[in-house]
Write a protein that binds this DNA or RNA. Structure first.
Lengths: 350, 350
DNA sequence: CTGAAAGCGCTAACAG
DNA sequence: CTGTTAGCGCTTTCAG
């Protein structure tokens, strides 16, 4: 309905007085065409302002030049940066990118996959929210493995049959926790990102390992689980304080929750970091803006997006290449929430 | 290549022992079909796990069930929220959304439009970066008007032939400036969002009008222009201070720049708001996080996205309905950067 | 109520 | 080197 007068390949052929296959051939460089015809076609294309119809093309060639990104949240402080890099890389290569938001609801993720299966996208970048513990997720993952669309996972390597780019979650939280221990902290609480998911699980393991390796006791009452949001971080911290256990530091599964936790601690009139030190994970820009600024583990978001697209492109072009798992390293950033002399400058790049 | 074994309408027809047109008819409810055949078709669909191929469907019907969003930045703190709302509304109605980033480069915007023209998207939501002053943009806008794809503008109403949802930019900055004047501020500087664009232009007009209406002089050396980013806000403030003119308040064209300005003022050891009061525009969540917290004008981002999609959907369904311009009102939020007793609570919803 | 057949715009054998 | 033709999977007249 929208394009009543758009020129078709037929129009071009008529105008140039050649066959439509010749037009197709010059446009796609698929066969050599004599100079005169070639020129006439190009002329016709120009005159008629012809653009090949990707829908029709896709119907034949099964190529849509579209990739799809499935993420938990479009408006979080984390994904937009990844999205942006992916978009830049993708458009360079002529791909359009479609977005899908799951809000951490597995059913929505499945719906997206189903939709995409029929929509003929050329590839999918997936930040999955499958529950790693739940045996019923096996079936879903099998399906993902068997699907005929290239898929690259980010944030969570949910299958060894799928390319993925992830963080060194466990090692990073281990580093963070160890750093707190090196500061002399002994009663270190942990506000976890949802541990039924891949990422939260591995991060928590890092915390536990660090305590163990330092001979510190693991106490259940020091561990609580949030839902990624600042608000939940605030609530978790409140609960932790209400338990009336000695706490001199908190490791938090992500920066968002850590910000909430810091606010809670401030409101309780406790000093950061003297009474309670706080460290997060991600290094989102707001973490540098608050007072005290938040120590955290850096996550190379741009790199993550770029690599994810690279992996995807490679798999599209080369479906049988070996599966790749890229694990990115994070790095400790010391700010005021663990060190009074820590960096208090604002990240102004946003 | 990706879907070798996906069932087609033909397979369903064969399995159900009916014609493909009957299958099509039951699936689209386009004609009444006898109960037995109807049931057999549904059964076949279920057994074969058939999903109709939207590409093929689109080729015939010219409908892609895809809308496209063109915005300056994917990763800014402003657009993701709008994006998110649009995505939610769109998926409810069965639309997929594709994103395009212009980085405020008009040529990129034009490229997107051209691409989309051939891609047969069902509609476009556009945050345009045309230079309102530049006469050459007339031509581009004419093209937009003539295009056969429904377009809804957000942030900038660049044509009265296009639906749009915008803020009351001028009135809002007028309010902000007036508020500062009511506080007794007399030497009020202005850090502008790029004034060659629709939005920046109108906001600046609000500042000028407020000064005029209060009988305050308009002085060029009090006005400077940034590029939306916190970094540029910092730099603009630095320049302003270097001019050695008395400044007791700054109105800033958006929150991001205002954050940079605040940092600069703090670094200069000046007191906020006593020495210099600061007010921004947008009410992004980071503005509540910094110290001092930033006074600003609220922008209903979710509403904006939802309305934009509504307008678009309406135009898709009803191409000849009258053009609508929706102007949203903002509201003053008083925080510490203008009032020592202003709200200092953190926005934890992100 | 049902099905055969003609395309949507394009690509890719296959002949010439 | 060029053109004819057969579809890709689906919708939609148009007969029956």
């Amino acid at each position: 309905m929208h394009h009543p007068k758009a020129a078709t390949i037929k129009d071009v052929a008529n105008y140039a007085k050649v066959s439509i296959s010749t037009v197709s051939n010059v446009l796609n460089n698929t066969k050599t065409v004599s100079k005169p015809l070639y020129d006439r076609v190009l002329e016709a294309v120009k005159v008629l302002d012809y653009q090949t119809n990707p829908i029709a093309k896709g119907l034949k060639s099964k190529v849509t030049n579209t990739i799809s990104i499935i993420i938990p949240s479009i408006s979080s402080v984390f994904f937009p940066q990844i999205l942006s890099t992916i978009h830049v890389e993708a458009s360079k290569m002529g791909y359009t990118v479609s977005i899908f938001e799951t809000r951490e609801i597995l059913q929505r993720e499945k719906d997206c996959i189903n939709l995409l299966e029929s929509k003929w996208t050329d590839g999918i970048i997936l930040s999955s929210c499958v529950d790693v513990e739940n045996p019923s997720s096996k079936e879903y993952i099998q399906k993902l493995n068997a699907i005929n669309i290239p898929i690259v996972c980010i944030e969570a390597a949910i299958s060894d049959k799928l390319d993925a780019v992830i963080m060194n979650n466990q090692e990073a939280i281990y580093t963070a926790t160890n750093y707190l221990i090196s500061l002399g902290k002994k009663n270190i609480a942990y506000i976890a990102a949802p541990t039924r998911f891949y990422m939260g699980k591995h991060r928590k393991e890092g915390y536990l390992a660090a305590l163990s390796d330092s001979g510190l006791p693991i106490r259940e009452e020091y561990i609580i689980e949030g839902d990624y949001t600042p608000k939940s971080g605030h609530m978790c911290m409140q609960r932790l304080l209400a338990r009336m256990i000695p706490i001199d530091a908190v490791v938090v599964g992500n920066d968002q929750m850590a910000v909430g936790a810091i606010r809670c601690i401030k409101d309780a009139k406790l000093n950061i970091p003297e009474d309670i030190a706080v460290i997060g994970f991600n290094n989102n820009f707001p973490s540098s803006l608050i007072t005290p600024s938040l120590s955290t583990m850096r996550v190379p978001k741009e790199e993550m997006g770029a690599i994810a697209f690279d992996l995807l492109l490679n798999r599209i072009k080369n479906p049988d290449s070996p599966i790749k798992l890229v694990k990115l390293n994070s790095e400790l950033i010391i700010r005021e929430s663990t060190d009074p002399n820590g960096d208090s400058s604002w990240d102004l790049n946003w």
